[in-house]
Design a protein around this nucleic acid. Structure first.
Lengths: 193, 193, 193, 193
DNA sequence: AATGAATGAGTTTTCATTCAT
DNA sequence: TATGAATGAAAACTCATTCAT
């Protein structure tokens, strides 16, 4: 039990860090708080992470990786644009719904992450691109009006973000997903149906 | 830099602070940087604000007050819900469009502001309420489907926020306003027209 | 220098502070000087005392507590007023004789201490009262002239203070004690002997 | 009225400084406080005194000079030691009785003054010497017991200091002077009378 | 000549990081 | 290996002194 725990403890620290960092600014978080939250000594943190910065970035990346893995997207290959939109809303909301702190964290430091990590940049772009492409396909197929796909994608994601950030605890991810998809699809739909 | 009148200098400092704080976290900003940006000595800042914290809060409040004054809302009194929605989108976007740094600042520290200032809390609630009530009226009038007004309001504002945060420099407030209103109104509309 | 136990180090810091504060004004003493004198880092001081002020007060109180414990007074219960006077002079002088720096410190900030700490106030009053009561008893017993006991007590203590503050290093506490008691007792005595 | 007021204002500032410095440590006194007390602008102080230090020293010296002038000592030339002692007590007490703040100031920074000014050093020594010589004469004349004149002088002055520092507002200088002289003279007297 | 707003050197205080245990 | 007391570089804050008005 001398070395086996190592990876486990790393995760304990990362979890604690995610928790604490999600509550306040990077600079407002004291190393001690993270140590306390993790239930380890402050020195231990430095055995696993060279600096507070590194820990912070690792925390972001870990959350991000979890998401990446969980990310259900590309999503079904050849379903209708409407279904894909619906699917994306549902998936993203479900993914973050019970991890609001982490979502807030990711959202707040989006910029830092995007600047520092290629994978994050790619993933972020992926999501945007998928939504955008889906919309474009919808337009091409005549299912959607000729909206600006980039703008529409941004608005769609804005609704998703808003749902994540401001939903009440009593509300569910799927309710929101349905409403977002519904609103969006009617909003961009051609009405022919 | 010569002798300035007191109130004038206070504003110079607040402007500088807004500029600097909008670029980085509170904790990442040094008092010296603000002083430099304002073109005053560090001590001067402390003649106008007791602590860095107080300066920060004053900065947020100043921006907020400017907005409050500029805020065009209650908006037209007895126009259609559709028009009001359109108006709100246009007004809010126009208000913040060229103050993105400040908007980001306000958005980032929404919580702090809401916790500390009643006026902010009220203003924020006002906007939400107006949107929500407009939606409710639309529903009652049969112009909108029977959506959950709170959720719909949240999604509407989510689109607005997204527009503010992620728009490209080449895009205009009014373009976005039109698209948001269009998308939203079709989304919640009954289709009877 | 190694690792010390917490309470031990607290005392090391307090000793150093007493030393440094006794040499100069509170405001003229730099935190760094105390740290250097204590042989610890500046930050360490702040682990034990919240502010420089708190450290200062703690320093005064510590010396005061030491004295309180060492304080031999109430002194003999039922001996003659003359003996009690002699005893008090001897005890107080002995107590402070080799702690002149601390005595000076205590004396200089008498007011601060009296204002802030009830125990100090009580102790100070105790000493005064004991002297005064002793004098009153002497007067009642016909051993002393009908002097104003409060004034006489003040003068007696004035001699004691003067001895502490201005004695030469070559002089001893007991020599002074004898002379003070002698002078005072003859001074207030009735001469009947 | 452009230049005539100059010396007058200098004194106003010195008075204010004496008042404020007597209440707190040199370092605890802000230049602003002195300016406020003097009813002049802060800058004005610097027109009269180069630095705060200089003002402080000037304040001490001013008080000291006033005393020097008022100092009645050498005292009567060829009266009895008893009379001289009585005279000295009365004179010193009278001199300081209504200037307690200044006395406290002088007393607190005795060391600084003694270190910096030859005249002060001389004056202080004078007083001590006069008392001591008077005692010696008394001893030689057989009027006083064979006390250690230095110690006795110190104790005598200790009583005087104590009277100045701790007397109540309701008490008078002459009462104290009488009691001090009485106590001291009986204390060192041979009893033959 | 007088003023008090401005200044920045000098202090206090914090906190990431180290290191003795 | 884990710890948390110790540290000092870095940041906030103060205040004597200057200087534009």
């Amino acid at each position: 039990m001398a070395r086996k725990l190592t990876e486990e403890k790393r995760l304990v620290i990362l979890d604690a860090a995610a928790e604490v960092f999600s509550r306040k600014d990077f600079h407002a978080v004291l190393t001690d708080e993270i140590a306390a939250e993790a239930g380890v000594g402050k020195g231990t943190i430095y055995r696993y992470f060279r600096t507070k910065d590194e820990l912070y970035f690792a925390t972001l990346m870990r959350g991000f990786d979890q998401l990446s893995k969980a990310f259900p997207v590309p999503a079904p290959p050849e379903c209708t644009p409407e279904d894909r939109i619906q699917r994306i809303a549902a998936d993203v909301l479900k993914l973050f719904w019970n991890r609001r702190p982490f979502y807030m964290l990711l959202h707040r430091d989006e910029k830092l992450l995007l600047d520092r990590d290629r994978a994050v940049r790619r993933k972020r772009a992926d999501l945007e691109r998928i939504v955008q492409e889906t919309i474009e396909k919808g337009v091409e197929a005549g299912a959607f009006r000729a909206v600006d796909s980039r703008v529409a994608a941004n608005l769609f994601l804005g609704m998703v973000r808003s749902a994540l950030a401001y939903h009440r605890d009593s509300e569910t991810a799927s309710t929101y997903a349905v409403q977002i998809a519904d609103l969006f699809l009617r909003g961009v739909g051609t009405g022919t149906r």
